[in-house]
Amino acid sequence: MTTADTLLPGLPDPVIDSQRVFRVVLDAMARPGTLVDLPLSLKVPAPLDPATAAVALALADVDTRLWLDGAVGADAVRAYLRFHCGCPLTEGPAAADFAIVVDPQAMPPLAAFNAGSDEFPDSSTTVIVQVPTLDGGEPWTFTGPGIRDRVRLAVAGLPPAFRGWVAENHAGFPRGVDLIFTSGTRLAALPRSARLEG
């Protein structure tokens, strides 16, 4: 059992740091595919990367249900997130407001998460996918809101089917999940509005 004594601390200044983290996530979501840096350093329990944990700490709380993939399910991580976010954990990806994936190869398809409804597309899951690197993978090109002309994103470590899931996710607009890719202290977002061009 992990107790509060052995827990790693959360955001050093919860008020100001939450705001800073939110602003980089907002910036990332408003400019899909653009890499942004975490504005602070954070010691987090393995296997989480600082960017992954920071997004959860800044946005999840008692009002949001969190889904964790099998690889993230270490007791230390659960205790850490439960203590700092106070968020209820859910077993079903379709019931999650936020999902954290640290082993993308074993992740369920994006369609397994909540895509929201046509009336309330905002009720969808935000899926945080932690990857080895954000710029070493196969480059994909996107257009859409927030993208001036087109943007290239080369996330590494995604399963082969992922590309198809992203296209499918966009095709269901306005329904769909929103993705935040994290790696180390960097992140990039891919909202459902981004269209995969090639």
Partner: peptide
Amino acid sequence: IRRAILKAVAIP
């Protein structure tokens, strides 16, 4: 509010 803003940005 921040969560609402992020969803708003994702669904222009």
